[in-house]
């Protein structure tokens, strides 16, 4: 690189020494990072295994009846034997949760954008959003079933409604709470409103959006399940009701395990996306 074209006679100050070109130091850093990553993965597994062992011990020692609480092995065998039934019921629930997640977050993002550009829109509609949010899910569910019928639609709507509020609040904040000096910088650079939106506001909102999406991932599954409690013949929610009425506690527990596992996978996918997209932010958080 020719320095002279730009700055004749200027010697740039070198920070070369600040990069410890020390291989062993780097190797130590990498291995410490790897150890931390393994610990992060192993500890939850150990904790869950411990809790299952404790549960098994309690059931065995106190001789708990199967219709009150099953043993872990009973649940495990149901998970294997009735895998087809469980998975067949997971499909509608997962579909409702995913569609509700997409719909609720999309609408929330669009409305948050409108709020940031129009104070009047926020003043008019934010109280409405708060009011809808204060209605408990179990109360929203029957209303939506009456409105939308017995298919997937009311479940999707419930999942969407549950996702909607946290994303609306976080996204509005993320789009709005931009460093004021960064905004002034954009003005000095004569940036257009579109450039300010995409290059500043949207990027600034992503960490806020992802913390909302992580909440929404598990909430949307809860929404779909609660929706299925009312007049549904398939889905994780329907299976829960059915197993409860039949005092089939191993099936009930197995159903819950399947539902939670899906929820956890959904959450992990969002977390992974977050780490991938917000490298700068996750590095800062550590």
């Amino acid at each position: 690189m020719s320095q002279s074209t730009l700055s004749p006679g200027v010697t740039p100050v070198s920070f070369g020494g600040a990069f410890a070109n020390d291989e062993s130091e780097r190797a130590r850093f990498v291995s410490a990072q790897r150890r931390l990553a393994w610990r992060k993965r192993l500890l939850p597994v150990v904790a869950i295994a411990g809790l299952i062992a404790l549960w098994g011990a309690v059931v065995a020692i106190f001789d708990v009846q199967p219709f009150i609480a099953p043993s872990p092995w009973a649940v495990a065998s149901v998970l294997v034997e009735k895998a087809d039934i469980l998975l067949a019921n997971l499909v509608p629930t997962a579909t409702e949760a995913l569609l509700g997640f997409l719909l609720g977050n999309l609408v929330a993002i669009v409305i948050a954008t409108a709020f940031v550009y129009s104070k009047a829109a926020e003043e008019a509609f934010f109280p409405v959003a708060v009011m809808i949010n204060t209605i408990p899910v179990v109360a929203k569910a029957p209303i939506l079933v009456l409105l939308l019928g017995n298919g997937m639609e009311p479940k999707i709507a419930i999942a969407a409604l549950i996702c909607f509020f946290p994303t609306l609040v976080n996204m509005t904040r993320g789009l709005r709470d931009v460093n004021p000096q960064a905004l002034e910088l954009m003005k000095v650079l004569s940036a257009s409103p579109r450039e300010i939106f995409w290059k500043l506001r949207v990027r600034n909102s992503l960490p806020y959006l992802f913390s909302a999406l992580k909440i929404a991932a598990s909430m949307s599954v809860i929404g779909a399940i609660v929706g299925e409690w009312i007049g549904s013949t398939s889905g994780i929610g329907a299976l829960i009701i059915q197993a409860t009425y039949n005092f089939d506690s191993p099936l009930l527990y197995a159903t819950i395990v399947v539902g939670s596992t899906f929820s956890a996978v959904f959450f992990s996918v969002i977390s992974m996306l977050e780490r991938r997209l917000l490298k700068w932010n996750t590095a800062r958080a550590n």
Partner: peptide, 26 residues
């Protein structure tokens, strides 16, 4: 990248500027 900045004739090489302020390698 913004405000039509790419089209201007006075633009300088960003890498050379980082070197000028002592930040080559960063």
């Amino acid at each position: 990248e913004v405000g039509g900045g790419a089209r201007r004739s006075n633009n300088r090489d960003p890498r050379e500027l980082l070197a000028l302020v002592g930040l080559s390698g960063w």
